[in-house]
Amino acid sequence: MKAPPFGYVKARELGQVFDLLDQHGDDAKILAGGQSLIPSLNLRLSRPAVLIDINAIADLQGIRETADSVIVGALTRHVVLETSPVIARHVPLVAQAMPQIAHPAIRNRGTIGGSLAFADPAAELPACALALEATFILRNRSDERRVPASGFFHGLFETDLRPGEVLAAIEFPKAMAGHRFAFAELARRHGDYAMIGMAAAAPQPGTLRLAYFGVADRPVLASAAAACLLRDGPQGLEAACAALAGDLSPSGDLNAGPQTKLHLAAVLLRRAIPSLFAPA
């Protein structure tokens, strides 16, 4: 099918984006990489009056290092994250997740900001952001707002973005010495949305965040399971697996019912233990 009619504006700078958002409100959609938005247009599931193309906005580009963080511009394409030495060194969880996201031609075009703002609960990057306690940098015409990942995802394709706001960048804490991480997902076919996946991060000893995706309307932290492992180390695995039933109450989809997802959640956790507790 062909997309329904809409208008299009290629924004040159953020101020223009805010003008257009003010003018069109909910009838406007921001076009970043387009790898989720354009399919929804071609399916006629989305009917914006106007698309605001932000691809040319320099403020939203690039990967920047600070002393203890990496700030990734919202327009950074997946392929750039995948091949960035900065990401590989300082945000290795994201580097490991990237090849799992769709296929090369999609990663050449898709952006981190687009993926996070789209908030597909089966997608990899939201879970990575949640596991890493990334900070979402949201801008409107006058302010910048910093929202922790745990507060950004509100539900199925729903985020903390307010009218007139744009996701400008994502700040990831740099991996510290002694950090551990694991990423795994189960998809029927390479590049498909996952039946279930897990992004796990232990930035320093005594910390652990297990973020599952493909289980609910947003990525979910398995806090009780993580607590078991923090308390007892690898010996806490069985308790942690049992605790997943409380942490997650997965809804079923075409490929896996709730029980299957819960079972697979434990399998992923079990398989992540060697990475998460690898000796220094």
């Binding site: 099918m1 299009y8 290629k10 076009l31 354009i38 691809n55 392929v79 296929h103 031609a105 075009r109």
Partner: peptide, 29 residues
Amino acid sequence: CEHGVCGACTIQVDGVAVRGCLMLAVQAD
């Protein structure tokens, strides 16, 4: 498919492979 799934429309834009059905003509300006 026009949904970015099948890959039949894969072309090169600025030297990299993209799904031509997931890019607007106006974006190719």
